[in-house]
Design a binder for these strands. Structure first.
Lengths: 120, 120
DNA sequence: TAAATAGTCAACCAATTGGTTGATAAAGAT
DNA sequence: ATCTTTATCAACCAATTGGTTGACTATTTA
């Protein structure tokens, strides 16, 4: 992957974790309440082991945390991680949108001037 | 990947596109202005072909668009796609945060009541 | 103590990813 | 017409991903 720093590595793992429909459905489920591996695996066709792997990907991506309750290992959403991702995306999205607005405004000005100089 | 619908497939490609530091740096670069393949490849050690592949991943993920200018193929950021990603993340992040706030509020109430009933 | 439940570990497999080199296409410059 | 520049295509390779099965640990229950 040719990483540049820890921050990059963390973003890699987090975005990769979201790049799968099963893992996104798990995130959606956990946004409502915490759940165990068996509960999370129930809606899917695949084996519990496969879901366990998906959960590990989410955990290593920092998107969820886990606790212990006897033999259960409940999963909890880590909203702070999601916030970091939107912050990263928005930091560039907003720069680009501001640039587009300036361009629109410039084109609008040119159009106005053209109309003034060529009234018909 | 076991896709469920088109929307899922689009999110897969978009999040996967962001799960790489090279592609995130390209996004960051394009947020400032459009650029050609050669311009985008310049800061990296890898071959131009490799960067070209990264650009295709971004394009298939809907994160960038391309135009034609003679033999150049300039790349432009597609801010609408970034907005969709933050919308997806936020839809679940905000649900979870609201739940946590209700929990905090409940615990606060219980704590208040305990203090009232057991005023030390 | 024995049996059931919750979950992980290990080995394996097919498909995909991220990189390389070499050839090629298409447009511009001499 | 030839040469240079911009960019892509094709074939290949090592590493990773997403899934399987089977064995295992650890906790709870009978």
């Amino acid at each position: 992957m040719q990483e540049f720093d820890e921050r990059d590595a963390a973003l890699d793992k987090a975005f990769l974790a979201l790049a799968d429909p099963v893992r996104r459905r798990i995130i959606a489920r956990l946004s409502r309440s915490s759940a165990t591996v068996n509960e999370l695996a129930e809606p899917f066709q695949m084996t519990k082991q496969a879901v366990s792997k998906h959960i590990q990907v989410l955990e290593h991506g920092g998107l969820i945390t886990r606790s212990r309750d006897g033999q259960r290992r409940p999963c909890h959403l880590a909203p702070g991680a999601l916030e970091e991702l939107t912050a990263w995306i928005d930091s560039y999205r907003l720069v680009a949108e501001a640039r587009f607005r300036r361009l629109d405004s410039l084109l609008g000005t040119m159009n106005n001037n053209a109309q003034k100089e060529e009234p018909s």
